[in-house]
Amino acid sequence: MSMDWLQTIGQKTLRFFQRTGRAVIFLVHVLSGLKMLVQRPRLLIRELYSVGVLSLLIIIFSGLFVGMVLSLLGYVTLVDFGAEGSLGVLVSLSLVRELGPVLTALLFSGRAGSALTAEIGLMKATEQLASMEMMAVDPIKRIITPRLIAGILSLPILTAIFMAIGIYSGFLVGGVWLGVDEGSFWSQMQAKVDFQHDVVNGFIKSFIFGIVVTWIAVFEGYDAAPTSAGVSEATTRSVVHSALAILALDFVLTSIMFGI
């Protein structure tokens, strides 16, 4: 009985490392398609539209509400200490260092990552990828590379939009509705938020999340079992693994960037 248990652990561990190995080989193959992308930038632009532009709506709305809630809750706490002038710092630091990169990446994996996995998985299940191979077109370079690069480029831009909208909606709630002094809201933010330390680090996070989320999404799609159940499992795994990877990596990155 206990041997069975041990065997299962061993099997799962082996399978995990096999899959990770496949994912790395896959990534190398995907990156070998970069040359084609330089020659045919149109392929990238199309994917930038479907991965990036079409994710705008959910990012804008989430940024709007997250900024408003943050500002409201921050005000309620700060006003007891007469420190509501620091509301701008609270809102912007939370968004720039943490909420912007993490929430955008989570939303992105749900909106764009899942779509990528399902699309690629279905292309595999319906033999579209195999038929490309037989037309002497490498499906990894033609289909996957533009999607991966589009994801990596889109996420930091979406994060910037999320942050900007969040900060501004925080100001609308704090400054316009709750009557926090506009001057101190912006000037304290300007004084306390450091470009290098806060903004750049936030974007480094977002860039890393972009690589991880899109890599997981395209790999899960490509590795999916070519059946309807296989594609649905792959899509679920894509979102779950992305979320776990984002949160775990965020802790590691935060402790390196902002830890003691």
Partner: peptide, 27 residues
């Protein structure tokens, strides 16, 4: 080589014209 798949395996996001033009445009 040419291969006709059982399912047809047409690229679903391209029209009939573009599906047939696909191998030409790629090569």
């Amino acid at each position: 080589m040419g291969m006709l798949f059982q399912s047809g395996a047409l690229l679903t996001d391209l029209s009939v014209f573009e599906n047939i033009a696909f191998p030409i445009r790629e090569h």
